Amino acid sequence: MTNQPNKFDPQIITDRKEYISLFDNFEGNKQEVFKQILDIRKFEIELYWKRTTFFWTIIGSVIAGYFIVFSKTDSNQNSLKILFSLSNLGLVFSVGWYFANRGAKFWQVNWEKHVDIMEDDIIGPLYKTTINKEYYRKKFFHLLSPFPFSVSKINQVLNVVLIGFWVIIIMDLFMSNLTIELSSIESYYSFYSLLGLATFISLFSLFAFTQTGINNLFKKEKQLKSTEINFEKRGLKQTPKTNE
């Protein structure tokens, strides 16, 4: 006896025809569906930047507070406790922002895929047709020309840089104020060398990992971006009937 698929389980969609068939019983038309997709996509982008503003405001305040206390500190225990608290608070909010960025990117990509699949029958391949990115990648050193950087990827890289910043700050607080002898570590690593290395990695990452489309920096063969259909449709939970 074989197990029959449960109609309430998620439905995996990997084919365009299968995706379009989801709307066969829809009483409206594809234009209405497509308009709704564009509206939700626009809403998700607006939410993305609102969240970014929120986290930048909080983290910027923590950074300002940290350096205000640091500039007035006399190495007493209360000042160190404040610095340590602020640095940990900054790290927590930075990690939270990183997760929020990835979550927002997930939903942005989700609705972009919907647009890619639906638009052909409504307005044609408008969103899929873009300027040739490879042509502009050759003009990186033309400082006034366009370049295919992804704004959201830059935001994520800066987010990771900020996490690294707080980690270095916390490490420096420990190494500067712990009573345990750390001379063997300090002979190889210092606050300045770590910060310099982190800055170099940050600048390299901003160039290498923030270009739109598939990252081709380390690949010999150039690949064009394509939309992979990989959706799942949530199942409906059946409410058990109760005897009245």
Rank of each mutant, 00 (worst) to 15 (best):
R102D: 15
Q31V: 04
K220H: 06
W107T: 11
I12C: 09
I180F: 15
N29P: 00
F70K: 07
T242A: 00
D74S: 11
D39Y: 11
L126N: 00
L158K: 10
T212P: 00
K220F: 11
Y192D: 12
K42Y: 13
V62A: 10
F70Q: 10
H142C: 06
D74I: 02
G164H: 08
I40T: 12
N216M: 09
Q108H: 12
T2A: 14
L89V: 13
Q11Y: 06
L143H: 11
Q156R: 13
N29C: 01
K17W: 09
Q36P: 00
W111A: 07
D121H: 01
K233A: 12
S150W: 06
S184K: 12
Y98W: 11
S184L: 10
N6D: 15
F207D: 02
D74V: 04
F204N: 07
E46G: 03
S75L: 04
G28Q: 01
F34N: 08
S183H: 01
S87I: 03
G196E: 13
L47R: 14
K138C: 10
D172C: 10
T179S: 15
G213E: 03
D15G: 07
S150K: 02
G90C: 04
N3K: 11
T53Q: 13
L126K: 07
F140V: 06
G65Q: 07
V161F: 08
I68Y: 06
S85L: 10
G103S: 14
K225G: 08
D120Q: 12
S61G: 15
K128V: 07
I180E: 10
Y135V: 11
E181A: 09
T53C: 11
K35M: 01
S226K: 13
E46R: 09
Q238P: 04
N78L: 05
E232P: 00
F55S: 12
M118K: 02
F218G: 02
D121Q: 09
I154H: 07
F99G: 01
W56R: 15
V151D: 11
S193G: 02
A208P: 03
M1W: 08
Y136I: 01
N243W: 05
K222F: 04
S75C: 02
S226V: 05
